[in-house]
Design a protein around this nucleic acid. Structure first.
Lengths: 190, 190, 190, 190
DNA sequence: GATGAATGAGTGTTCATTCAT
DNA sequence: CATGAATGAACACTCATTCAT
């Protein structure tokens, strides 16, 4: 019996990300993805139930890697501001070294596939961030407003700034990262 | 492409928005859009060059209406903070009274069609906002950082907060709007 | 506007019958049927909702023609035996001049499509036969057993005899038709 | 095609019969049959040359069991009518205790596979019935018409009556079996 | 002997677009 | 102007079968 080849699964993830970024979900047909990954379209269906499963699995795979990279070296005993700054830096590092993956998640979030993802499962991976923000609120360091508002100002601007499609004039460097973190921090702090 | 019946053109815009919101770009075929607008698929090609033209035109149409609504009653002689607060309020008003249109632009921004839009042309409509921010920087009221950073914190959180897909727990009311504006202002002010 | 071409619908019926007879339902793909009818597969979907609709419509079309041919010149005032004999003759005439159509209905009856047909609607067309048999029972000319049994002996043997697949040694001619009718009549009469 | 494990062969027969009855030939794919039989698709090809071989073998297997059951306790020295009545009873017994197998043969007879079966080989198993009918003709008990006609009236109605698909109102019990045999006998006797 | 992996060829169906009226 | 008819090309997916172990 032939044995399952992990390389094929990874190749399919990469092909999916590449094509979706280049031509969008609409045009990324199963056969194009398979061709890009250098497998038969039929083989794809050994690794994934269907197109939706392929795309959602790709998303979840990215998200897991992402949360690991962002939370890896976090020292939660440090002051709230320092922890968030570290997250901020990690995010930019991750985004700038994994632009393709990041861009894919951006597209995914606004696609109809997004509705089919178990968000709670995914958010679990980002729990440490929730904890530190909660600590900030308790210690009267961070504004006591709803969580949605805080993350909208704390993290979503990263997505925009890191997306060259939207911010062609933002240069990703240490200086600009620190400068923009200052805005984020000013927004949420008391 | 000979244009005549304005009602048909508008019907096609509405049908496009409705279907894209309901089933996404991928599933919104020309014939479905035509059926929804109660015209023949062939008629659609009288008003628009092709599917891409239809979708981009729909987007531009929304954006024009949007800028008008947001900038309509702006009094640029008022203090910087007041002007921006007015813009902030107008945006939320527009979004909450034109949820469908707004949701379409969200989807559009993350679709491959977005690359084909002449952004400068569109940004022209938002010129007054640029002016007031520039004034804020000159008067040392607003942080002197790149324009991208400022708008990322000033306006992009609105998109997130107003998108129930992303912020299911954010309630759109006067109080929450003012509270979130406070964060936006704190982010950018000196 | 182009106008719908009745010839195409008929060509699709003929192609379906021909192919199903030759290679069976399984192998009669939509594209093969379309090629045989000399239309595009996509065109087929203008005339029929899907493959099932095409096949069931073909069946119903045949059945209607069939009932008309069989019951056309029936004189219900004649003696029971004479009426049934006329039906018997008509059936053989129909079968021998429409072998393809008949063979199709045979295949159809044993396919899964059969379950999706409104049988009552179809049986209505054969009502005159029901009437004459009922008369025969009332007048003590025909055995008083269930309708199923009577038709199983009266009409089903025709299907067998007329199917050269099953009865390669049965020759369809006036003599053999009359001879076999004698068996049918002996079976059901008192 | 190396044969070994009889259990697997039988499991494949049963799986084929079950699936074909449930979803038809068209939908009964090799992999579904293999899954139902709890073997790998590749294993199936050890026992059978290909799909057609599997299906035809299944048919022949059933037919052999069937002929055995029908002819098992036949006493050819008895009067013609009694022998045929016994066959008639045996058939109904077989059909009602092996509904699945019977239903499969019904479907098979109207499929294109039927053309590929060596019928002479199969008919050999039913030779005793041929003998008794021939005897009936010689003794002027049975009508002297072609063999096809006789069997069409003698045996084919059984298939119809026993097929609940075609005769939903026929109840299989001793009384109805004897009553319907009377029709069969009246049809063929002189 | 037995198997899951692998695939080219095919399935039914829909697509964006053009044609003929 | 407006339209339903028409279609080649593509879609997501499954098929019967073979391969490699």
């Amino acid at each position: 019996m032939r044995v399952r080849d992990d390389k094929k699964q990874v190749a399919l993830y990469r092909a999916t990300i590449k094509l979706v970024n280049e031509i969008g979900f609409e045009a990324s047909s199963v056969s194009k993805i398979a061709r890009e990954a250098e497998v038969s379209p039929a083989t794809l269906y050994i690794y994934f139930k269907n197109k939706q499963d392929l795309i959602i699995s790709t998303y979840i795979d990215i998200k897991k890697n992402m949360s690991q990279a962002i939370l890896d070296d976090l020292d939660e005993t440090k002051p709230v501001r320092d922890v968030l700054q570290q997250v901020w830096r990690n995010m930019f590092t991750y985004v700038s070294t994994n632009k393709e993956d990041f861009r894919f998640t951006e597209q995914f979030s606004n696609s109809p596939y997004h509705a089919s993802v178990n968000k709670q499962e995914l958010e679990k991976h980002f729990e440490p961030i929730v904890r530190v923000i909660r600590r900030g609120i308790e210690h009267k360091i961070i504004k006591n407003v709803s969580f949605s508002i805080l993350t909208a100002f704390m993290f979503h601007p990263i997505m925009v700034l890191a997306n060259p499609n939207l911010c062609s004039d933002f240069e990703l460097n240490n200086e600009s990262i620190e400068a923009s973190f200052q805005l984020a921090w000013d927004a949420i702090r008391l």
